[in-house]
Each structure stands twice: as structure tokens, then as C-alpha cells.
């Protein structure tokens, strides 16, 4: 069963030298429970692809399917609702809500989506090793701890699709590896599909499938 499908998606941006085509007909298919990596150099369009998959940006043409829903037919509110209920997003930084405690951050999306499960959240917190930090605030946490909370918050809502954009980019290698391990482990446990955007082939190697973008075109899939 497909968790995310992109069909010949194009995207261009206006710039001083005219329109820049960032995505030139990209297709992608990710089944539920599988972990895919998307690699490419800076400016290859991988972040844009992720943003389009999340409904943060709209494709110029092509189709974007998340589960059964075609994102290109939804308006901003529809895309937001879809994100709330079905998609988990993890970024390099600015993931947590600074005014809420770790506990509140962990439960936030699940409660927004109406899928709150306290036991599951405690379970996740223990698995992620942040159970002792529940009453703290994001700024009191290290980078690694912050990303673990972000993963927990994302998974607590039981999304069908997890989109991660360089989630370990701000972390040192050792910490990053541990965070990635947890992410892969837990997405697999919850049966969510994962699309990991990274420029590191070492990290990409940990996923089941790898896609490489170059100048807006999918160069190959392994």
C-alpha cells in the first residue's frame, strides 16, 4: 500500500535570472512501513520535494498522493488537515514549540489530530530516553535531545508518513547516528513510511531504498 506517491512533479521559482526549474518531472513511490532516503547536492531540489510532499508548497504540475488523498486537489486548509492527521515532519531545527514543555510538545500533534494516547507517549519517551526531561522546556535541551523529542512528537500522532529533512544535520556524528537509529527503529515499529532527505550517503545507506536527485531530476533509485 502506497504511503506517498509523486507523479511527474514539476516546480519552478522566480528568480532574478527568470524562472528556475527546481523539479523537472520527479516521480516517487513509497510503500507503508518502508524507509527511503533522498540524496542530492545542495540546490538539487530535495528539500523542495519534501516540502511538496508535506503540502508546505504546491507542485506546478503532476500529482502528489499521500495515502488516498491527492494533495494537488486540496486547498491550504485541506493540506493542513492532512498534515495534522497523516504526516509527521522533522526538520534540522526549529522543530519544537518553545513555549511548551517537553511533555506538552510530545503530545501536541497527537492531541491536535485527536489521536492522543498517553501510554504510547510514555512508551515513546522511554524509548527515546527523554522520560526524565518531560517537565523541561526545549531551550533547556541539547540538540540531540531536542531532535528525539521531535521524533517522539511526530510518531505519537501515528502518522502514515514521516518526512525528515536533514534531521541530524545539526548534530555531531555519534549523536546523529543514535538519533537516526531511533528514528528508523520507531518508524518501523509504528508502520509509518519514512522519507529521509540527506546529503550524506552514509546515512542514506541505512535506508531500504535510496533516490538521488540531480538538477531537479531523479537520477536513480537503488
Amino acid at each position: 500500500m502506497t504511503a506517498l506517491a509523486l507523479e511527474t512533479v514539476t516546480k519552478s521559482f522566480p528568480s532574478v535570472e527568470g524562472r528556475v526549474e527546481v523539479l523537472r518531472g520527479v516521480s516517487l513511490d513509497i510503500a507503508r512501513g518502508s524507509a527511503h532516503a533522498l540524496t542530492g547536492e545542495s540546490g538539487s531540489g530535495k528539500s523542495t520535494l519534501l516540502h511538496i510532499a508535506a503540502g508546505l508548497e504546491q507542485a506546478d504540475s503532476g500529482r502528489v498522493l499521500v495515502g488516498q488523498s491527492d494533495l494537488t486537489t486540496l486547498d491550504e486548509a485541506g493540506r493542513a488537515a492532512l498534515r495534522r492527521g497523516h504526516v509527521g515532519l522533522i526538520f534540522q531545527q526549529f522543530n519544537l514549540i518553545p513555549s511548551l514543555s517537553v511533555a506538552a510538545n510530545l503530545g501536541f500533534q497527537a492531541r491536535l489530530a485527536g489521536k492522543h494516547d498517553a501510554d504510547f507517549i510514555i512508551h515513546l519517551a522511554q524509548r527515546l530516553g527523554v522520560a526524565d526531561l518531560l517537565s523541561r522546556y526545549p531551550e533547556q535541551l541539547s540538540g540531540g535531545q531536542q531532535q528525539r523529542v521531535a521524533i517522539g512528537r511526530c510518531l505519537a500522532a501515528r502518522p502514515a508518513l514521516v518526512l525528515a529533512d536533514e534531521p541530524t544535520g545539526n548534530l555531531d556524528e555519534e549523536t546523529g547516528d543514535r538519533v537516526l537509529d531511533l528514528m528508523l527503529e520507531l518508524t518501523a515499529e509504528t508502520g509509518a513510511a519514512l522519507l529521509l532527505v540527506t546529503h550524506s550517503s552514509r546515512l542514506a545507506a541505512r535506508c531500504e531504498a535510496r533516490h538521488h536527485l540531480r538538477a531537479g531530476r531523479m537520477e536513480g533509485t537503488e
Partner: peptide
Amino acid sequence: LAQLAPLWALGLTPRQ
């Protein structure tokens, strides 16, 4: 913006 962006990512519309 930096404080609001996560909420947007979590599924709130800019209008909200």
C-alpha cells in the same frame, strides 16, 4: 515566524 513555523508544519493553516 520561527515560533509559529512548527505549528504550521504540524498542520495549522496560516489563517488559523
